[in-house]
Design a protein around this nucleic acid. Structure first.
Lengths: 202, 202
DNA sequence: ATTACACTGGACCGCGCAGTCCATTGTGAG
DNA sequence: CTCACAATGGACTGCGCGGTCCAGTGTAAT
């Protein structure tokens, strides 16, 4: 990892990461072997250890980073401009659709419950992801305030945190039960409450 | 498992389950071996396979069931009588305290992301847990309605589902980041919103 | 007492899989 | 051209750990 990477090398490296991510989503962390990844990415074991000298753990962390980036990237177009109630509804639909499509496999969830504890760097990735995600929500709420749709006295950070928790909870229930009911309820209720937050402060 | 269990046998069996649960919380599912469990519970490998013929998976499912029961049992005294706002506050404190104490190890979370997919019976356990948990919340909300603290028109099920999701999300964020901020925010915000749900329907 | 069977101990096995090594083939720089 | 080093292939290894087996010890019934 001393930075010595040819163009070809870079390509292979990211091919490995993306392929590994795919396999991990399909088979789950615990039952995915290096051979699976080799097969999927058409690589040899030497390459795996060439690009990830510390072995499987290092690769998993890389995949985690990749997936984390992916999460925000996917909803960025919607998450980036939450300046009207329509935009919020749209974003809600996207999130629900995304996770329903993903079904019961959460690359991040399972990944972090697997390596999060042992590897110190892994936790940092989730923390950063959560921070950015929540910040985006906060920005959205503030832009609603600016537009006069919400009172300025609103506790933005708490609201954003609660909303993020609602999503995470909905998703984790979806993961473990296969039902998206809770995700839908959490999101729509959360947004509804946010909407009424102004009129209920008496 | 044909029901042939002496008193001694029953004792040993549950000793295994409880011991295994403890080890699993400490070391995580992936890095817990049968030998760890043997050491902790002072048993031999024969006993493990005597009481759980199908092997590790069966034992894990049993532990999962045990932990699931535990979750509700712990908060039952509070969860059982959510008939005043004070009771809700109290319950909130208990939940937060419980999970903060538990820190970053979630017996169920990691357990199910590990075996939930493969073992069919495992998923049923979570689903049942969620159902009962949510039902308890719903009962609490209805008793508030009965007491005239909340309008009868409230969509109880959606609210309960959202609340449950909020908790789960808070917990799962606590698990992966180590911070209880979101759990606190989600719970207090959720209860606050519920409280204001009546006055904001116009 | 004896019989049947639950219960326990511990040696043993085999395989799946992470990680190692060296030999060979690109490939960019000078 | 050639030299150094990245990139690849693939055989080999070590062992952790789930699972099996049998032999020995309770223990509750008749």
């Amino acid at each position: 990892m001393g930075g010595k990477l040819t163009a070809k090398g870079k390509a292979t490296r990211s091919r490995i990461i993306e392929g590994a991510a795919a396999v991990l989503r399909e088979k789950g962390v615990s039952s995915t072997t290096l051979d699976d990844i080799m097969a999927r990415t058409s690589t040899s074991k030497s390459q795996l250890f060439h690009y990830f000298p510390a072995g499987k753990d290092e690769l998993l962390v890389a995949v985690a980073q990749f997936e984390a980036d992916q999460v925000l990237e996917d909803q960025q177009p919607y998450l980036g401009c939450l300046d009207s109630w329509e935009a919020w509804e749209q974003w809600q639909d996207v999130v629900i659709k995304r996770y329903e499509a993903q079904g019961d496999e959460c690359p991040l969830g399972s990944l972090f419950l697997q390596i999060g504890r042992s590897t110190p760097g892994a936790r940092a990735i989730v923390i950063e992801l959560m921070r950015r995600w929540q910040e985006s929500l906060a920005v959205g709420i503030r832009s609603l305030q600016a537009a006069g749709q919400l009172p300025a006295a609103l506790d933005v950070d708490t609201r954003a945190a609660a909303l993020l928790a609602a999503i995470q909870g909905g998703v984790s229930i979806l993961l473990s039960t296969g039902q998206s009911t809770h995700l839908r309820a959490a999101l729509s209720q959360g947004i509804t409450d946010l909407r009424h937050a102004g009129s209920a402060v008496p």
